[in-house]
Each structure stands twice: as C-alpha cells, then as structure tokens.
Design a protein around this nucleic acid. Structure first.
Lengths: 226, 226
DNA sequence: TATCCTGCGATTGTCGACAATCTGGATATT
DNA sequence: AATATCCAGATTGTCGACAATCGCAGGATA
C-alpha cells in the first residue's frame, strides 16, 4: 500500500538509508547539514561501509548531495527547486490520471472513494495531527499513480519525488487550511475517473497540484518576509 | 555539453560506475547478466568497496537491479519497460519543449539549428557508423531539455532515462532508415521554438517520440518473429 | 594589514580479511 | 523414482585499519 520501502529482511545499508531518509524528511536533519560518516555509523551501530552505501542510495533519491572528498550534505529545497519539482509533478501526475481513467478497475476506483471517506472523517475529528492528513493525501496520489500501470511512472513519483514531497510537507504543513478544498478536488478527480474521462481527470489533477504549489509559494513568501 | 558525467578527478567508485554504465549501455554486459563483485573489482583493479558503491549508484540510475544476498544483475529492457519509458519520455520532453519555447535564448536556438546542420552533413556522408548519429540525436534532445531551465527535468531525463535510452539505441539502431524523417521532425521542432510557439513545439516533440517508439516496436516484432 | 605558505587535525577514500548467506549437487530416506 | 536433507563452494555483507585528501589555524613575509 505505502510506496515507502519497508526494510524487512535486508542489508544494513538499506536500513541505514531508510532511517536517514526518515530523519531527513522529518527535518530532524536540517537542510544543508553536513553528514559525518563516522558519527552516523556510530549512531546506527554499524561500520562505515554500509553507511557509505546508504549515502549513495540517498544520492540517487536526490535527498543528499555528495561532493568527492568533501562529504555529503542534506539537499536544500529552495524556491526554485520546489517550483521545478511541482512543475514536473503536475505533468507526471496529470499523465497518471489520464492513464488511470482507462486502466483502473471499478474496484480500485471504489477503494479510492473509500479512502477519501476516511480522510473526511479524519478532518472532521480534526484533532489528529496534520501530519496524518498529509500522508493520507500522498497515499491518494500514489494510488492513482499505481492505477496508471506504468512502472516507470511509479518509480519516478514513488521512490524519488515522493520523498522530496514529504520533506516539503513537513516544512509547510503546519497550517492546513487547504485540506478542505483539497478534499473537494480529490472528490472531483475520483468522479472523473469513475466516468472514465481521462482528459478531465488530467486537467483536474493539474489544477489541483497548481493550487498546492500556489499555496506553498504564498507560505514561503510569508516566511521570507519574517 | 554532454550530459554524461565525465570522471575527471573523482573517486574510484565513480570511475567504476562510469565504466560499468558504458559496458551496460553498449551491450558488452548482456541484459540480465549477473554482476560478480569480485570479478569486476579485479577487472577494474580496485577493491570491492568502491565497486559496491558503484553498483548502488547504478541501481539509482535503474541500470542494474540488486537483490539482497543474491547480487546485482543488468536490467532487462523488455517491451513493457520500453513502452513505459517512451510514454514518460513523451510527456516529459513535450513539457521541456513547451518551456524551452519561451525560455531559450535566440542564440541557443541558433546553435540547435547548427547542430542539425551537422547531423545533416553526417547523414550525407553516411559512412559514419549509425552510432554517432544516434548519440547526436540524444544531444539534440538534451539541449532542448536544458532549454527548459528545469533542473529536475534535466536530472530525470539526463542522468537516468538518458542511459536507458542509449541502451535501447544500441540494441535497435542497426538499421537507421528513420534518420531522415527524424531530422525533418527535428527541423520542425526548431522552427516552432524559433517562433516561440510552445504548444506546437510540444505537439511536434510528442509526435516525434511516438514515431520513434512505433519504429522500435516494429523492429522488436520482427526480432520476436525470428 | 593583507596575503601566502605550512603543518596539523579531521574526514573521506580504499583495502584486505572475516562472518553470514545463498546455490547446487550429492546422499539418504520413503 | 521422487523428495528431503545436508554439506561444500562460492558469493555477498560487514568490519577495522591504513592511506589520501581537504579545511583551517597559525605564523612568516612584503
């Protein structure tokens, strides 16, 4: 269900990559922070070999940037980077919607609708941390991507951009006044999928992501002003 | 100019990754082939540590697939994988064209046109191996992607899909009867860019890539029949 | 005072050896 | 004969130590 790789029976390097990714996404490791191999290896109770492999993995996920002989640093999500990310995401998720409209089974679409019921419930209770809603939102998006039946699309949006998105969410999702209009837009998208109208679904998804980006941009403006 | 990473003064792992990528792309290492760490380390004259890091890098580039405790194998480009790849590429490069139409400088567009003159010359001489033409084609595409000014797009199409594309080319570019219509399409795209018509440029690029995929699909049909 | 050199500490890159795990085939059992 | 078990051999995963390189502080010089 969740696109995140759960280390079940795997290598130490994979475990380290998983834990590091988590720390980076949640902001426990600040953006731009230098990652000391020896220190991290110590903290994770492993040698430096596996840890170096983990860093190489994270580099592939674009979560860290490595410079030879100068170590690895957590990636910094500046405005331009996020703008580029959202632009690409708008295009790719739009494509996913168009494909999903013809390829998803009725069952899957029904499940998607049920997922939104859950979200609505969660919003009504409201007490829950915004975090859960945010993760739920990503679940929704990923289910549609899976519906595209395009493995490359799943890889791209799942393993890589997904992490950057989560990272961005953690920084900006303190105010969640966008959850209600977002849910509404999700409903519209599911409706379009149910009608098998790919063009419409794509358009709605693109608009939805544009809205999200605009909201984040405004938030960053306010932050910069402060 | 070239999107490929040239190992200048870098680490052994980077060198190994580069050489391995080259071997995989050119088919020197067959698809699905098992990659023995000790053997490769021996061949490259280095320890297994750097080599393992290189494999992790290649995994990020989707050129190899790793299974814990069972080693790494060269990825296999079956029909579905290539179909997915071309579908994503059609969308992303279309997007790049749309952006490039408004963001590229007149100078850059002129250079693009000059590049096509070069290609035309090369085709006339014909003697040159198809390989060069193929690489030239990828250059053309990447220049447009750069024109989009979207770093994420450049990363996605450059570091990752680019390699898979080259790999595919090596397998299928023995017959190059598509070079002339392709050049024609490239000219049309440049013309659209020069007119700053993003919509048209996107449409032409999508059609161009669709044509390439169709051509490759037919070729695979013939191969399967044999 | 500004600039360049130099040496030291810290950090990354690399290697070889050892432990853990998988693979394939031979043997034993039903 | 078919299946299960188990034992090498090979291969991957991990660790600790050593070498190479970088960044920076401190001092020398113009």
């Amino acid at each position: 269900m969740k696109p995140i790789t759960v280390p079940e029976q795997s290598t130490l390097a994979d475990v380290a990559a998983h834990r590091l990714a988590q720390s980076i996404v949640t902001g426990e490791l600040a953006q731009g922070q230098k990652l000391n191999e020896a220190e991290l290896a110590e903290r994770f109770g492993m040698g430096r070999g596996p840890l170096r492999e983990a860093l190489r993995q994270l580099e592939g996920m674009r979560l860290v940037k490595r410079i030879p002989n100068a170590g690895a640093r957590v990636v910094v999500l500046d405005r331009k980077t996020l703008s580029d990310l959202y632009a690409v995401r708008e295009t790719l998720e739009g494509m996913a919607c168009r494909l999903a409209a013809t390829l998803m089974s009725d069952d899957e679409i029904a499940q998607l609708d049920a997922l939104l019921d859950q979200h609505e419930e969660q919003i009504k209770k409201q007490g829950g941390k915004v975090y859960a809603q945010s993760e739920g939102d990503l679940d929704f998006h990923y289910q549609i991507v899976r519906g595209s039946r395009n493995q490359m699309l799943m890889d791209l949006l799942g393993s890589e951009q997904y992490q950057l998105l989560r990272m961005c969410r953690y920084r900006t999702s303190r105010n969640a006044q966008r959850t209600k209009p977002a849910l509404q837009q999700h409903r519209q998208i599911v409706a379009a999928l149910a009608q098998r109208d790919g063009e419409l679904a794509e358009m709605l998804m693109r608009r939805h992501i544009q809205g999200a980006w605009q909201s984040i941009g405004e938030m960053m403006d306010k932050e910069e002003a402060a």
